[in-house]
Amino acid sequence: MNRRDFLRSSAILAGVGAGAGALSACRTLRSDEEAPVRLDAAAFHASRRLVDTSFGRIASVERGKGPAALFLHGFPLNGFQWRGSLERLSRDRRCLAPDFMGLGYTEVSEQQDLSPQAQADMLAAFLDALSIRDVDLVANDSGGTIAQLFMVRHPGRVRTMLLTNCDVHENSPPPQMRNSIAAARAGTYDQKLARHLADRAYARSSSGIGGSAYVDPANFSDDAIDYYLAPLVSTPQRRAQLNRHLAAFEPNPLLAIEPALRRSRVSTRMLWGTADPLFPVIWADWLDRTLPQSRGVRRVEGGKLFWPEERPDLLAEEAQRLWTS
């Protein structure tokens, strides 16, 4: 599958319906401020840089100055998932959206460990390379697995944590992912993503990512499909890494860290879509009971797995509240 031209300037849909206000600023600009640059596919592509670490060259997009905030994407997405949040929050934080190893545009060797634990350690090396000591974490989906592991494996490096629908405790990975993980182990999951690129109606159907993970399947736009999925099937090596990345989420890496979560002093807030069959709200409530410094759960009515991409306004509002609490 040939990549499309990522440098074209067609728009990316980033909100749920016309009322989402997805491309507007989240507060009134001062007279001495400039409006933020909209991060469509072309702008995001132009902003991407590769950061050298011992794990490989980590692709990342950065916006803003000040204390760092680290945005951890879901599967099989990349940092582009957070474009709307970066637009809104770059006035408050130095916002970084890296791509995990085996996904997006990050470059690693064929031998590189792609397990969630290795991903967490990669983030520490990534921050070290940028001379960043600690961060506010924002995470979604499998990125939430890695966020929890990072907090436990690298104590003192997390100021706050904002978790959206993601793996939690026994629900990691969720049972609905068993067939996909089996396909990844067999080396064939990449074929499903190649079908998304070839058949956009399928990509937005209930069997595809658009229909299953977005409230409005149209928000899984052609630009987003290309930007997320084209690099994953671009070469045999990338296809193999995609399969290894997914397969590495078994066995469950989160059961062992429950005692550490119960000792955590990190202020954490959960924002949870209520229409996500993979990660029911009961798991947000489990985190609320388990984390000593929980700041509670906000239910996002009707939200599916990738609601943070569709509702960056809500995500930014809650992030700002957590950071200033």
Rank of each mutant, 00 (worst) to 15 (best):
residue 67 P to G: 13
residue 281 V to P: 00
residue 318 E to N: 13
residue 144 G to Y: 02
residue 210 G to F: 11
residue 94 R to F: 10
residue 232 L to W: 02
residue 145 T to D: 01
residue 33 E to V: 13
residue 190 D to P: 06
residue 185 R to V: 05
residue 298 R to L: 15
residue 117 Q to Y: 08
residue 190 D to W: 14
residue 60 S to T: 06
residue 92 D to Y: 11
residue 299 R to W: 10
residue 48 R to D: 09
residue 116 P to V: 08
residue 60 S to L: 03
residue 56 G to C: 11
residue 32 D to C: 13
residue 132 I to S: 04
residue 39 L to P: 05
residue 245 H to W: 15
residue 294 S to N: 09
residue 54 S to M: 10
residue 280 P to D: 07
residue 145 T to F: 00
residue 189 Y to D: 06
residue 186 A to Q: 12
residue 216 D to Y: 02
residue 168 V to G: 00
residue 305 L to Y: 00
residue 252 N to S: 12
residue 75 F to D: 03
residue 224 A to M: 15
residue 42 A to H: 07
residue 80 F to T: 00
residue 173 P to T: 05
residue 60 S to C: 12
residue 253 P to T: 00
residue 219 N to W: 01
residue 255 L to P: 00
residue 314 L to C: 07
residue 210 G to K: 12
residue 85 S to M: 09
residue 7 L to N: 10
residue 126 F to I: 03
residue 93 R to P: 03
residue 205 S to G: 13
residue 75 F to S: 08
residue 134 D to E: 10
residue 137 L to I: 10
residue 123 L to Y: 01
residue 14 A to H: 07
residue 159 R to G: 07
residue 55 F to T: 01
residue 299 R to F: 11
residue 4 R to N: 10
residue 299 R to H: 13
residue 97 A to P: 01
residue 41 A to Q: 14
residue 252 N to D: 10
residue 252 N to V: 06
residue 304 K to D: 08
residue 131 S to M: 09
residue 241 Q to G: 14
residue 23 L to N: 06
residue 121 D to C: 09
residue 139 A to H: 02
residue 26 C to N: 14
residue 210 G to R: 13
residue 112 Q to E: 12
residue 254 L to R: 05
residue 64 G to S: 07
residue 210 G to C: 15
residue 110 E to Y: 07
residue 152 V to E: 01
residue 223 D to I: 13
residue 127 L to Y: 02
residue 108 V to Y: 01
residue 5 D to S: 03
residue 86 L to C: 07
residue 300 V to M: 07
residue 233 V to T: 13
residue 19 G to D: 07
residue 162 L to M: 15
residue 15 G to K: 00
residue 229 L to F: 14
